[in-house]
């Protein structure tokens, strides 16, 4: 995989937008791998009892998918220096074969003097912004 260099990017450079599926199975698998067994992520009865519309995805699953857009763009997953997101709306995952979709995009906000680049990331699902104030600082070759 070729690595993106600092010279390859400009302020405003857009990252290729991608859409990721998220089904109930993904949430069960993510719960096991991450250790987050909060029942709002797998138990519809429980989710509704605490006032949620349905089972919702782990915010960290969305954050991980957004990271794929970033690390596939840079070509080096070890390049990430800082990564932060705010979860602004839940990704509601219905109990069907399609589940939900998360669409992730990004744009270069700044090229920094220390050789890093700051990228703003966006994520939407079901017409709602599910990540806001999301940014990463990456060190490019």
């Amino acid at each position: 995989m070729s690595r993106l260099s600092h010279a390859d990017v400009e302020v405003g450079t857009e990252l290729p937008e991608r859409t990721f599926p998220v089904r109930r199975l993904d949430l069960v698998r993510y719960a096991g791998a991450s250790g987050d067994f909060n029942p709002i992520h797998w138990n519809e009865r429980f989710a509704k009892s605490v006032g949620l519309p349905d089972v919702i995805a782990h915010g960290m699953f969305t954050m991980a998918e957004a990271a794929r857009v970033l690390t596939d763009w840079t070509g080096d997953p070890g390049c990430v220096v800082d990564y932060s997101v705010r979860f602004s709306a839940p990704v509601v995952v219905p109990d069907d074969d399609e589940g939900a979709e998360i669409t992730v995009g990004g744009k270069v906000k700044s090229k920094n003097d220390d050789g890093t680049v700051t990228v703003l990331l966006t994520a939407r699902s079901g017409g709602a912004k599910v990540l806001v104030q999301s940014k990463a600082v990456v060190r490019l070759a």
Partner: peptide
């Protein structure tokens, strides 16, 4: 009350992977 907890925001700062 864990039953009412949702994730608000999250950040990572890495010295290395």
């Amino acid at each position: 009350d864990f039953s009412r907890v949702v994730h608000g925001d999250q950040s990572f700062h890495y010295s290395r992977p």
